[in-house]
């Protein structure tokens, strides 16, 4: 495992400049926008809560002080970086809370949505994908391919609308929005509310992706020489399938899972908006409409960092599973 250890350290080190780059990108965005950076940090909205123009001016001045906006650019950058790294992602003047608090409060509902979707999508997608890969070429595998392509091409929010239309409005099987009925906060009620949104995310987003990849992967691996050799060796078909085909074809799937965790937030925005789900995605949407810049940027930053970290974690998992990674050839 010594070889792998070096790889882990290397990837970790590579992660750091990435995180820095994202922070710097954020910083550049603040300053690239036309207008006073202080206003940007403040956010452009009808500051009903902040009171009169005098209050506003005071706040703006405070902002300038805190972020050092009167200093030369590189000093500002330094201040910005240190602030971000110490956990101060900004303050939303609209909601009157630090960004970190807002995120902490709203992330749970989003996670409740995302995690089941990934799991379900993975299970269903893998089952169907691997099976159709095994049966390829066949009518079944062509159908699976077609379904996954449609799933790929479907706009998530539209699928949400259609689901609502069919299942809520017409059939009345599931509720239309919200996380729970305010009059009945039981677990069952919550699960009931969870169904449609998760179904949307799963069928329109995660499942097709896993299905497609696992099918392609299984087909490709089945063509490799070592599978043929395994057949020639007279190994039992089951052994060949599990040890030779699956073990090799599931590697890209792991990579995909890592990517998904990052992409899921995008889907979350759509679904949360349509279903009035009180999660982080919805918050982002509201923030975008209201031009609540600090919140937007704070969340953007956090999500980017999350993506970097998950990417790194995925790489490590792959390195553990695949002995070829991180290897340096020994000459003998």
């Amino acid at each position: 495992m010594n070889l792998n250890r070096r790889y882990i350290v290397m990837r970790f080190l590579q992660m750091i400049p990435l995180i820095f780059s994202v922070i710097i990108l954020n910083f550049m965005l603040i300053h690239a926008t036309p207008g006073d950076p202080a206003r940007i940090i403040f956010g452009e909205f009808m500051s009903g809560g902040a009171g009169s123009g005098e209050d506003e001016a005071r706040i703006l001045a405070a902002i300038r002080e805190q972020w050092g906006l009167n200093e030369p650019l590189h000093v500002q950058l330094w201040i910005y970086i240190t602030q971000m790294l110490s956990g101060n992602l900004g303050y939303s003047y609209r909601i009157h809370q630090p960004v970190t608090t807002i995120i902490a409060q709203r992330i749970m509902p989003t996670l409740i949505l995302i995690i089941p979707s990934i799991l379900l999508g993975m299970i269903l997608g893998l089952l169907l994908g691997v099976y159709s890969g095994k049966k390829h070429p066949s009518a079944f595998s062509s159908i699976v391919e077609f379904i996954s392509m449609i799933g790929y091409s479907i706009p998530t929010f539209w699928l949400a609308l259609v689901f609502i239309l069919v299942f809520s409005v017409n059939l009345n099987w599931f509720p239309m929005m919200g996380m729970q009925n305010p009059l009945d906060g039981s677990m069952l009620d919550r699960l009931w509310h969870l169904c449609l949104p998760v179904a949307t995310l799963t069928f329109g987003w995660t499942m097709p992706s896993f299905m497609r990849l696992s099918k392609a992967s299984v087909i490709e691996v089945s063509r490799e020489d070592y599978v043929k050799c395994a057949q020639a060796e007279g190994l039992k078909n089951r052994v060949i399938f599990y040890k030779y085909v699956l073990r090799n074809s599931l590697l890209p799937v792991v990579t995909l899972t890592g990517i998904w965790i990052g992409v899921m937030f995008t889907g979350a925005i759509m679904v949360e908006t349509v279903f009035s789900w009180p999660g982080l995605g919805r918050t982002m949407f509201d923030a975008a409409i209201a031009r609540d810049y600090p919140l937007l940027m704070g969340v953007f930053l956090i999500i980017s960092v999350c993506v970097v970290i998950t990417s790194f974690a995925t790489d490590i998992v792959i390195a553990i599973l695949d002995p070829r990674i991180g290897y340096e050839k020994r000459y003998d």
Partner: peptide, 16 residues
């Protein structure tokens, strides 16, 4: 590749 695309656009649209 790491930058979440939709969020970036969201951000940019809000800003610009």
């Amino acid at each position: 590749l790491m930058i979440p695309r939709f969020f970036l656009i969201l951000l940019v649209v809000a800003l610009f």
